[in-house]
Design a protein around this nucleic acid. Structure first.
Lengths: 139, 139
DNA sequence: ACTGCACCCTGTAGCCACTACAGGGTCAAG
DNA sequence: CTTGACCCTGTAGTGGCTACAGGGTGCAGT
């Protein structure tokens, strides 16, 4: 209801004040009014918009994606195909990341499981990192 | 065998020349000899070391971890506990990332599945981003 | 000898999405 | 009228490269 300071807006949306100023600088949040003492003064619309931004960011959307989602969200009568496309693209990228990390996890797990302690000279982890897999003898 | 230029070292290890110079700048690769024309001149030991670095980086180890792994690898008579600890820590971090991304994937999948096209005003994706989950009505 | 051309050199700036100061100003309570 | 919590701007740092700009080197072909 009443206008909020940047600190209150930060608290209300779970954002840091520096981040809010950063979003303003890059044009993601509109510049708010200022008080007589030059403090930023926010209203309900800023809480909404920053909440949207924060939720999208928490879901891993890039700043550019968020920017586009905000623009699309403002055109209520248009088709949501573009929105779905952004989300689908992000979902696909997330799946690719999961797949890559899963491969890493398997590799790391194998390395660790094969190491039975002892000296560095016998350490499987170091051995794995030291030799090119392609030229390692099959034995 | 014969000394390599930076381009040849790059080719041999699948690294970019800029990255090799960067690794030298941050002290990860030792400064090589120079030719009369001030070209960097690399030997087999550089191929080994850069190969180690690249494999560790491909497994997602941070530069600082790689630095420590290189130091540990050089002390062949010491225990490999420290190595295993770095690897275990990295494995745990990788698992946390996978868990976080898996949650994201589920959320994104739910959002997309519930959206049946049409107008933005009815778009589930936009709705999800627009409202705070905690204050959304249960219906 | 000369001309291209591919490669090499240094140094700096940019990427992403913040985060952390430094050096100041404002405002309400005591 | 002072204290302390908040606010302001602007700049620099994070990780791990990547991309220039503006030059020099080396070798093949003519």
């Amino acid at each position: 209801m009443n206008p909020l300071t940047i600190g209150h807006l930060a608290h209300a949306t779970g954002t840091k004040t520096e981040t809010i100023r950063y979003y303003e600088k890059i044009g993601l949040l509109p510049r708010p009014r200022r008080t007589a003492g030059n403090y930023r003064s926010y209203g309900e619309e800023h809480v909404q918009r920053l909440g949207f931004i924060r939720r999208a960011r928490d879901l891993g959307f890039s700043i550019d994606d968020v920017r586009e989602l905000l623009t699309l969200a403002a055109h209520r009568e248009q088709s949501c195909d573009n929105v779905d496309e952004i989300a689908a693209r992000h979902l696909a990228a997330t799946e690719r990341k999961i797949a890559a990390l899963t491969r890493l996890r398997r590799e790391l797990g194998k390395m660790l499981a094969s190491c039975h302690g002892g000296e560095i000279s016998e350490c499987r982890v170091i051995q794995s990192l030291s030799q090119d897999q392609r030229s390692r003898p099959a034995a």
